[in-house]
Design a protein around this nucleic acid. Structure first.
Lengths: 327, 327
DNA sequence: AACCCTTATACTCAATATCAGTATAATAGG
DNA sequence: CCTATTATACTGATATTGAGTATAAGGGTT
């Protein structure tokens, strides 16, 4: 094979001299655990930022950089790690001559004693996205949301736009005759951003709260685009649990089937049909009986199961299914 | 909200001073078109490299940087663009004090007159991955592949490893009683790399062809990890066409249902069942009749259809299904 | 014109997966 | 001993999917 480095630099090229521009790289970690029926994320700085760290030359790769750094700083065992997205939007930092590329990662773990030395703490992701939790039916904040959307629709400049907005809001938020689709987390966030119903939308353009079409929808914001990264991660995870056995990374070694179900429900933000859930789990032989039972269920004792690690090898990617269909 | 920049830099931090290390960013474009029943990629440099360009401060975002640059250089209309993966492995370049972060993108387009001024050309992706094309049954190169895998399995140090290798090879390549799964493109590439059945595996460690377990499997290599990026893109696309109407980005304005089917088959690398394919397309109202017919089919004239652009708005992400089940 | 070859288009049938509901078992607490 | 609570096991209706068959409409050939 010819040496590509010997080639001259053409407009389309595959290897070019490194530009000595001020570019820095940043790793952002979205660490998720499920505790007591709540999906939690690790946050720092008054709970409104995701942990991050610089990518350094010493790191072998992006992922190993993140792994090393998270495990050293928090002592958390990172079972499953996957790259989420890479951002480099200009308005992420103030400086115009400086560019930060942020590579975000999703990591699944189990909640540990809080590493308070770093002012880190776990928070339910529904504190940032209250409209995403449909486990107890329509969230109570729904009224604010509906009226906010209505105001945005009404504020459209013309009839066509108005109709489009109504359609889009209905589809994304399961209004009119649309069903709620729990995977559209990012699209919903983007709509709320566009509709200026969340504080992030007013940043940077010198706008004040008065410019908002209506009152903000409940839910805490985060710094920079961290809440957007969280939305991306939730969406990815909600999609993934349906065809990959990643939930088990969030479970203790042994668990009852109901505990497993509650974990899936916590992530999906909606309840699932119990008999069907059990059938699918057992049919696919995702778990094996430990022979023990748990008495702490409040009723008949439940069998304790353990994840069959063998399935990771058997179907490494081939396919497993978890039901996230209605209750 | 408090200004996060005012905070001091803690071990876990969200904003930190940019490290002035030698980090550069690179955009790599995997441009795909389907022509004459062949899925093609745009290549440069004697057809063994993907086009790439530096990410510059002037770019508004990564994606807009890529778009601007590709459209300016090639004149190709990039319909659909999606981020693939970000790499920064240390051994991607020789230099130890220099790090390149590569952000790869997948773009769908339609083949144009070759922009020969940049020595770019379209090549079938099966020239790089002959083992991925199962449209005409098992590829003819299968013998080399099988014996290579057999040698790798036999070369295992102990019985357990041997058994694992056999299982893994069987699952990925559809041997023994396993079915062929067209989505496992990257996993297959990684196995071949590990088994040293492709030239890339011998780079860098001073090894020569003699160190190889067996003869290389057919298929052209590419520079750096470009063939790996191609594998990632193929896998992503094969997965995506099943639930998103992205195929239409690769089709002309009007087309017959068989043309559409051939396009899907080209991407999936396998044939699909015609009546079922048609049923699913029509059932979902993905296309609309143009009223015209095409005589160039060799048999009964076929109706010409057009993609119903409205579905992009209706189901922006909600879900469409294309069947890629057996013929 | 009759025939054949080719592709288009329309239907049918069986197997499977999914959705939803109900019945029984085993514990704790009053 | 009864009741509340959860666990676990079945059952039936419906939708989806996989696979096969039949008919229609062109061109070319004898």
């Amino acid at each position: 094979m010819s040496d590509p480095l010997a080639k001259s630099t053409a407009p389309l090229h595959s290897v070019h001299p490194a530009s000595t521009q001020a570019i820095a790289a940043d790793l952002i970690a979205l660490l998720v655990a499920v505790t007591a029926g709540d999906p939690r994320v690790l946050t720092i700085q008054d709970q409104n930022a995701l942990p991050s760290g610089p990518f350094e030359l010493a790191h072998r790769s992006l992922q190993s950089g993140l792994r090393a750094w998270v495990e050293r700083q928090t002592g958390l065992p990172l079972g499953y790690v996957e790259q989420l997205y890479t951002f480099a939007d200009r308005d992420r930092t103030g400086a115009a001559d400086q560019r930060i590329i942020s590579i975000s990662y999703l990591g699944l773990t189990r909640e540990q004693a809080e590493s308070s030395q770093y002012e880190a703490s776990w928070r339910s992701w529904y504190e940032y996205f209250p409209w995403e939790d449909h486990r107890l039916g329509i969230p109570t904040m729904e009224k604010t949301l509906r009226s906010g959307l209505a105001a945005w629709i009404a504020a459209a400049p013309d009839q066509t736009t108005r109709s489009h907005r109504r359609q889009r809001a209905a589809r994304l938020f399961g209004l009119e005759d649309h069903l709620w689709n729990e995977e559209l987390v990012l699209q919903r966030y983007e709509l709320l951003y566009e509709a200026r119903l969340i504080p992030e939308a007013l940043r940077g353009d010198g706008a004040t709260a008065e410019t908002a079409v209506a009152a903000f929808v409940p839910g805490d914001p985060m710094i920079l685009d961290h809440r957007r990264i969280l939305a991306t991660g939730i969406a990815r995870l909600r999609a993934k649990i349906k065809y990959r056995p990643v939930v088990f990374e969030l479970m203790p070694d042994t668990f009852t089937l109901l505990q497993l179900q509650r974990c899936v429900e916590a992530l999906a933000g909606k309840l699932v049909h119990k008999p069907n859930f059990r059938r699918l789990i057992e049919q696919q032989e995702l778990v094996e009986d430990t022979g023990e039972t748990s008495q702490e269920t409040g009723g008949r004792p439940a069998k304790l199961f353990r994840f069959r690690r063998a399935v990771l090898a058997e179907r490494a990617i081939a396919g497993t299914k978890l039901p996230v269909s209605g209750a």
